[in-house]
């Protein structure tokens, strides 16, 4: 900031701009203040009348408008995307492992973001609810449905003196057949889908977030 004298109304304008821009990154606010101060120095001599100064300030517009232009609505989440959107992208596939709470937090972040459309949010929610924790649970269930054996019958009596068996016992075992090849293939496809679903969904959301935030004004044409 310059130490040169400014018109009192220009000084007041800079103070209001500093207050309005307190949420901007410090280097961006500093840069804005320097630019606007330069503008005011050129446009409003320190001894200018209030009417002249007010006209210059009116042309500049309200400080809030300048701050909004520095951080327009479509890009605001992008600049702060640091933690909200990226947290959602990470928590949706992985948060389920934290007793499901992490996934719910990711879900709240997803739906509270303005970067994603309702379609994006539905994709993030439904593919796959619970994320990879759900995938793991399904894999465990699928791996449990293998061949089972059940046995019944009786063991031979034991001689208490010698500790040896007296005669023979009878034990019958029944082996249940495992799933068919078609069922196994179905299980594999299901497992792969549930494994890829949360990952692809997270990548899609990240891609959409980056795409929305960096869309150029030129693309309007």
């Amino acid at each position: 900031m310059s130490t040169r004298a400014l018109h009192p109304l220009a000084e007041d304008y800079l103070r209001r701009l500093r207050r309005a821009g307190h949420q901007l990154p410090p280097h961006r606010l500093r840069e804005l203040l320097t630019e606007i101060e330069g503008h005011l120095t050129e446009a409003v001599p320190p001894d200018a009348g209030d009417e002249e100064a007010l006209e210059v300030l009116a042309r500049l517009g309200p400080p809030g408008d300048i701050v909004d232009a520095e951080q327009p609505p479509a890009q605001a989440p992008a600049d702060r995307r640091g933690w909200r959107e990226w947290a959602a992208v990470i928590l949706l596939p992985l948060g389920g492992f934290a007793f499901g709470i992490g996934w719910l937090v990711g879900l709240i972040l997803l739906w509270s973001s303005r970067l994603w459309t309702t379609r994006d949010k539905l994709i993030g929610t439904l593919i796959v609810p619970g994320g990879l924790a759900t995938t793991l649970a399904i894999l465990l269930i699928l791996s449990g449905s293998t061949t089972t054996n059940s046995c019944s019958g009786f063991a031979p009596p034991i001689n208490p003196t010698t500790g040896r068996a007296i005669g023979h016992g009878t034990i019958h075992c029944i082996s249940s057949p495992g799933p068919s090849a078609a069922t196994t293939a179905f299980h594999v496809v299901l497992a792969v889908l549930f494994l890829l679903g949360p990952i692809v969904s997270a990548v899609y959301l990240a891609h959409r977030a980056v795409g929305r935030s960096s869309s150029s004004a030129a693309s309007m044409l």
Binding site: R28, E31, L32, E35, I36, H39, R59, L60, G61, P62, P63, D65, I66, D68, A69, E70, Q71
Partner: peptide, 12 residues
């Protein structure tokens, strides 16, 4: 332009 001040963020 409606507000000249908004041009500075644009330049940035």
């Amino acid at each position: 332009v409606t507000s000249e001040g908004t041009l500075y963020p644009l330049l940035g």
